[in-house]
Design a protein around this nucleic acid. Structure first.
Lengths: 158, 158
DNA sequence: ACACAATAGTTAAGTTGCTGTACTATTCGG
DNA sequence: CCGAATAGTACAGCAACTTAACTATTGTGT
């Protein structure tokens, strides 16, 4: 006989496998145009700036949970490559505001398309399930998120 | 009104958030004993060898999907740190077989305990759901895993 | 039987993305 | 108006990976 606890554990393992696979997918380089690819970290930064233009370097840092040093370096790289533009703020001479260049917007859209394919596949697969079944997994995911948040904040408290 | 498709998409977003959080948790260093920590990559290599002693360097490489060079470097590091032992194979003078040292087994167990804490928290949280709800989630995760597998193998075919 | 290809592993140099520390340059507040 | 806080950069270093070139075995075809 299979106990409930065993079922729960095997379900969690399945979820972790899915999470791992997704992490691998996220790491794939994103093709922008013929012969041009950007790394995942670059794509995510471009995505973040594209969705909220006018961000500062520090905003990028807090958004991704990395140090401002890391954000500064990433931004500098994307500026050098021509995807991002750094304008000095209107009211402020010590801050910069970040914007996408034309090339940056092209990369942004390429990234959307790239992920759109995945999303369509997933939606398609989930359509076979009933509304209540899908709702159940939503609740489950909330619970998992809560446990993981505990774990992550635990680390910060050290 | 909320359509089914909207629910599906918001569910997928929740899944992606969980996947991201899990990836962050996986990156936390694992405490082995007072003042000794190992990185996640090290912990996973130790875990893999512990679960299947006698592995070769190349087996480690294929297990993790990295180059044999990367595996060789990781193994060399763990040997240097005293967690792994490299014995020349019985029938073969060009292969090595990998085993855990006492110290390696201690790290293996520390890693298990480390994960056990999370698992207990999750099981606790999931106990509120009914058996059939949990079973549904399992099926759903299988479906998601299948979509992701397609995507990953697509990449390899390039 | 022997040359040659395949296999197992190592080494070296370079890359990405991060951290920590130290630094400059602004801006704010008492 | 001086000192503290804030925004950002520079530099060194690290972990984990890659590619390419290498050694050293082992297996195979003729």
């Amino acid at each position: 006989m299979e106990t409930k606890e065993e079922l729960i554990i095997s379900t969690i393992r399945a979820l972790l496998r899915v999470a791992k696979k997704y992490a691998r997918i996220e790491q794939l380089p994103v093709p922008v145009e013929k012969g041009v690819e950007i790394t995942t970290a670059e794509a995510h930064t471009i995505q973040a700036v594209g969705e909220d233009e006018g961000m500062r370097v520090l905003d990028v840092a807090t958004f991704f949970g990395v140090t401002k040093s890391a954000a500064s370096q990433m931004v500098a790289r994307l500026v050098r490559k021509g995807f991002l533009e750094k304008r000095t703020s209107d009211h402020n001479n010590k801050e910069f505001q970040l914007f996408l260049t034309q090339s940056g917007w092209r990369a942004f859209q390429a990234h959307e398309r790239f992920h759109g394919k995945d999303l369509a596949g997933l939606v398609n697969r989930l359509s076979a399930f009933s509304l209540s079944q899908i709702a159940t997994i939503s609740v489950l995911l909330e619970a998992l998120g809560a446990v993981m948040d505990e774990r992550l904040s635990e680390k910060e408290r050290e």
